[in-house]
Design a protein around this nucleic acid. Sequence first.
DNA 1: TTTTTTAGCGTGCGCGTGCACGCATTTGCA
DNA 2: TGCAAATGCGTGCACGCGCACGCTAAAAAA
Lengths: 353, 353
Amino acid sequence: MKETNPIPTVFDVAREAGVSRGTVDRVIHNRGRVSEDSVRRVRKAIAQLGYSANPNAMLLASRKAYTIACLIPQYRPGEYWSLISKGLQEGAQSLQGYNVSVKLYLYNSTDIDSFSVQAARVLEDRPSGVILNAVFREAVTVFSEQLDDAGIPYAFIDNKVDGLGNILYYGIDPYRSGYLGAYLLTLKGDVRDVALIRITRDKGSHADPNGPRREGFMDYIGEHFPDCTVHTVFIRPDSPADILSTLEHFFTAHPEVRHLAMTNSRVHLLSEYLRLHPSEDRVTIGFDDLEKNMEALRAGYIDCLVTHHIEQQARQAIASFSDVLVWKRKPVRRNCYVHLDILNRYNLDDYYD
Amino acid sequence: MKETNPIPTVFDVAREAGVSRGTVDRVIHNRGRVSEDSVRRVRKAIAQLGYSANPNAMLLASRKAYTIACLIPQYRPGEYWSLISKGLQEGAQSLQGYNVSVKLYLYNSTDIDSFSVQAARVLEDRPSGVILNAVFREAVTVFSEQLDDAGIPYAFIDNKVDGLGNILYYGIDPYRSGYLGAYLLTLKGDVRDVALIRITRDKGSHADPNGPRREGFMDYIGEHFPDCTVHTVFIRPDSPADILSTLEHFFTAHPEVRHLAMTNSRVHLLSEYLRLHPSEDRVTIGFDDLEKNMEALRAGYIDCLVTHHIEQQARQAIASFSDVLVWKRKPVRRNCYVHLDILNRYNLDDYYD
DNA sequence: TTTTTTAGCGTGCGCGTGCACGCATTTGCA
DNA sequence: TGCAAATGCGTGCACGCGCACGCTAAAAAA
């Protein structure tokens, strides 16, 4: 019962402008070889008819393939970067009709050489675009210059180096996440002691990626509870028994500490201790919705998780990137900060993307 | 430098199965007129090659148009349903390449006749699918039966009638949202009095859409603070001066009440009172991230908002629906519960979709 | 046996666009 | 003046798919 579809095609534009499809095509793609007069008439016809290219036909005809290289840290199942990786690949999945694919280049985040090796591989493969995260400042700076030279667009995910050229960032504001975490930890007020549990790192290999978050955390405490002492406890993630004894040792010496926090994504490492030493008035918070953290939240070992849609963030990065590659659109925002979500026992369900 | 793209086409499938493109096509679309033997061979070839149709070519060839009728309440700018409407239209926008469009049918949510009128218009226009919300139980039940008869698929958004046929629901679990709201209101413990501010309704016109939410709210209070009194205060939204005097009157009589909540989406109506009567130890919570509520949160009049990605929820409904229409896929979940977000002064930024 | 029906299958056209090719006409240069 | 180069433009094919049409051979009806 519908009248014929009035959506204009190149053909209509050509007729309107009194030229051929080829000429319209040349005007649209700025390929030159058209008289000024024709250009003007075609432009006018396009505006008049409200023509815009049919994306399906476009993609079908221009059989181009886009590859997005993703340079991110290695991961084990369930870890933070496994979620990013999953989101990246899901993003590519949904764009496969547009011939967009992602290729992962994984490096060891404690070994700068492995980063350089993978970065070199990326350059060699000449991808259409690059998504990376910034663990090693100088190496990333060098790499970004090489990408600039090669004319390959790139975006940062989860972590960035400020002041680099033509960049995009997808992730949270780590300082604010720490600030919010401290707020949630101290909601009930009157806090004198806080235990910040940290993971021992191989010394000096690189900057701590959680620095800004910890800074936000400390600043909130400092601003709102100036008399509060923040105790730092170091644990070694590789030996669960060791974690337990370290914590037991600390809390035996400091029974007055009722507030616990971890600023990296592995607060679930505390579960064992919290299970063995239950307490009514203790508050424990952590970050990121890893499956194990969610379990700890569900079991009641921890009280609150500050997180964001990790997979969604990655998917969005791919989607925006393909907007740039496939549709030649310019990104609107440079810093795509993701919203910080608060998870507790009453809203932890349905937190899939 | 790439080898020829190994993405299989119908042609490859046909060759592999030893038949023609037409036969493959008939098998794919279950159009019959194919021998069992051929069907088997084609199916096998498809599986073997991992064939999946090129969406662009498909859409280009099958020049179909899908219209999704959206039957929702009228709204004024900034109100809850304006966000839903925006999300619906954005969803259609992003799917225009697939010839998906939405058409809005707005009814007066206090007038059952206007619902029936619009519902009749929908049936008349014979859309490809319908998205609606369930304000008037019986009218919706009748309408859904008519849609069933007409073979038009439909989904509920934001609000549903349980027990109806082949349905899908996009929205929150209102009971849980109320429960969570009560938890957040009483976080600091030791609550003896709570004021629940409600809006006066024209009597008996229809069921209160916020019933389940209020129930969840009351249940949490009852379970965790059995000695707590919940005072209900009715206000009339149309006269700001009236709101102010009603509240002043109530709180003069009950100065001990420090906890305020509103279970509908218009907690911002309290701003004026809260601005004129500041207090350190008062807690106010509300629901939904309307622009005015966000302002109240930013200004510090209210402390916490329980909400969800309203626009995103609508976009998702459109997206899933077009999955069903365009790609003939069966929806996976029947109840698409959206995650409940917690907003406070420290994470209210970046809460766009 | 002849005619009609039908199951099973292949082919051609069109969707709207990108791009290579080739033809006319004009311009530059000796 | 003559010939090459450049400019401006139109045409044909391909992309992968949906669908209408028509063909063959076997089954059913006459």
